[in-house]
Structure formats: C-alpha cells, structure tokens
Design a protein around this nucleic acid. Structure first.
Lengths: 184, 184
DNA sequence: TCAGTTTCGGAGTGATCAGTCCGTTTGTCA
DNA sequence: TGACAAACGGACTGATCACTCCGAAACTGA
C-alpha cells in the first residue's frame, strides 16, 4: 500500500469519526471527503460504501475503549479502575450512540459489526467487574451483560443531560451508587 | 373542519407514530401516506413539513406519559407511584421502542418541539419527585432534569438488555437503588 | 338534491446524496 | 532519474426525498 494511501485512509476514519459525532450519520460523503482534504473517489476506494466507513469508525472506537479499560486495570486499584472507566465512558458516549444508531438505522446488526472486537470487550468488562467485586466496590450480582446495557443507558442519559452540569452529575451519582453493593 | 379531514389527520399521527417507532425517522412521507391510505398531498396539507408531523407525534406521546404519571399519583402512595412510573415507562419503551426518542426530542428541544407539553411534563416529574422525596423513597438531590435524563437512559438500557431477563432485572435494580436515598 | 367549498390524490419538481468512471497526478523501485 | 502501477479528484449518474400544484372527488348546509 502506498504511503499516501495509508495516510488518507487513517485521516478519513479520524475525520469521519468527528463529523459523525458532531453532526450525525447524515453528513454527506462529500463533506467528509472535503474535510479530510481528498476527493469523494478516494473515500469510495478505501471504503466500498458509506456504511463500511461507519463500521470502521465504530470498530475503532470499541478498540480504544478496550485499550482504555486495560490501561486502567494495569495502573489503578480495581475499584478505582472500574469507576474511572464508567466515568470516562461518558465522554466517549455521545459519539458512540450516534454511530450505533446510524448502523441500526441502516439495518445493520451492531453485534455483528462488533464481532471482531466483541471478545476483547467482553473480556475487558469481565476483568473490570471481577476486580471491582473482589475488593467489594461493586454489587456482586452485576454481570458483564448488565454492565454493557448500563453503559449504553448511561451513554444515552449523559447525552441527554450534557447541557446541564448539575443533572449530569446527579445522573453519574445515580449510576455509581446503583452499581455499588446494596446495603440490605 | 370537515369530518374526513379530522379522521385523516388523526390517522396520520397514529400511523406516523408506528412507522417512526418501527423504522426510524427516515421513513419517507410517501410511505406514511400510503400506510395511512391517503396521498402525499394530504400529509402536507395537515402538516406543513415532515418535521411538523414528527413534532405532533412527540407531543402526543409526551401527553400520554403525563397522563399516566398523573393517574399513578392520584391512586398510589407517592413512593410507589414514583417507582411504578419508572417501571412502566421502561415496559412501554421496551415494547414500543419509542419513548426514549420522544424524551430525547423533548429534552433536546424542550422550548421548541414540545413547548406545549414541556411544562406539564416538568410538573409531572416535579410532583412525582416531590412526593417520593417527602416519604424518603428517593434521594433528595434528584431533580426533574436528571430524572428525565435517567428515564431516557433507562429506556435505552432496558432495550439493550431485553433479551436477557437476568441482565434486565439487574439493570432495573441498579437504577432503583441508585435513585434511592444514599446511605452515608 | 344541488351548489359551493373544502379536501383529496398523485404526477411532477428541484435538490441532495451515494456511488461510478476515467483522465491526471504521485509515490515507488530499479 | 525514469517508467509504471497505484492512487487521486471531481464531474457525472441514477435514485430518492421533501414538497408543490391543480383537476377530481367528496362533504356539507340549505
């Protein structure tokens, strides 16, 4: 692969990520191409359809999430790692929401798109939970499947409250307290 | 207003609600018109733009939600009314896959899209919360704005977990426990 | 029943978008 | 450096969508 091709491909994913996050999946291919400083032809040489570009963006995001979980687990105490992850996930949330919904709207099964990343993600969730449960930071009945659903929900709730810092803080508190071991 | 016009208008809102819920906002005006058994011209006579039809659908949904909150408050003990409302909102969302969208639309554009209903909705939330706080069923720092965001998130989380009853139960527990007064 | 008016239906319009095609440019390697 | 394949750019195409327009149909009140 030629050097300029590699550069353009990476840049396209990066720019597409930003534009999809900021303006939804409705942004036209031409807009993305212009923002990346290339022609539309280049977009479609690297990605056969717009949907393929969306998938790439989505997978890239999931990979970053997994990386982040692993970094936190390696450098923090388990309970702290877990809640730091939850909190950070909020920042990442709005963008992920938009992409996942775009894929669903396009009739794509998100689980199918993420099939390559899914095992890593599941493992990261499992390890985060196991560590946090071991030190008693998280309720013992919280399983990876529920955590996944909660993160999706948190992402959505955070997006909804993003312009109201007080509400956003309350939302985070509710999630965090709800995930902690319940007294009684 | 002529009898057939009234009938068509109501039918359009009803059909549009179903189609938007099932297939997203991307459904074309012509699809909606055909499903309602009318021509596109009829759609645009009743609603100047597609967006106006969307708004009408949202407002109708929100009104139903407000009605339900009021009924619960009138017939149940405050804490029970609050949690029954939460639980029902989820069932409704998971089944119809639509309330979250409606709430997001209301939140993102409260002053605009749902200008007529927003005060009622806010009042219903405020009253539900006030009652529940009075009897100590809900944490005192939970405000209507945060509740609104949490409902959106809960609806989304529940939808994500709908095929896994154990995860769904855990998700509901996390939300309920998180909304209860925090010990310490 | 019938005139008068409202409402309807759907072909037509202009705009936009995903995706194609090919002449031109650029990186690569001998 | 020069030859050549790889990659590029953007005009172009066909499809689709929101919305318009007006002759036909249907409701209503007398």
């Amino acid at each position: 692969m030629r050097a300029d091709a590699v550069r353009n491909r990476a840049r396209l994913v990066e720019i597409a990520d930003e534009l999809f996050a900021a303006r939804g999946h409705g942004v036209s291919t031409e807009t993305i191409a212009k923002a990346a400083g290339v022609g539309v032809g280049t977009v479609f040489r690297h990605f056969p359809t717009k949907e393929a570009l969306l998938r790439e963006v989505y997978v890239t995001r999931l990979e970053r999430l997994v990386d982040r979980a692993e970094t936190l687990m390696a450098h923090r105490e388990p309970g702290e790692a877990f809640f730091a992850f939850i909190t950070e996930a909020v920042d990442w949330a709005a963008a992920k929401n938009a992409t996942a919904e775009a894929l669903v709207a396009a009739g794509v099964d998100v689980a199918d798109v993420a099939v390559d990343v899914a095992p890593d993600l599941r493992r990261a969730f499992r390890d985060l939970l196991a560590g946090a449960k071991r030190v008693g930071a998280v309720r013992p009945d919280l399983e990876p499947a529920a955590l996944s659903a909660l993160l999706v929900g948190l992402a959505r709730a955070a997006e909804h409250a993003k312009d109201d810092p007080i509400a956003l803080a309350a939302v985070l508190d509710v999630f965090r307290d709800g995930m902690r071991p319940h007294p009684a």
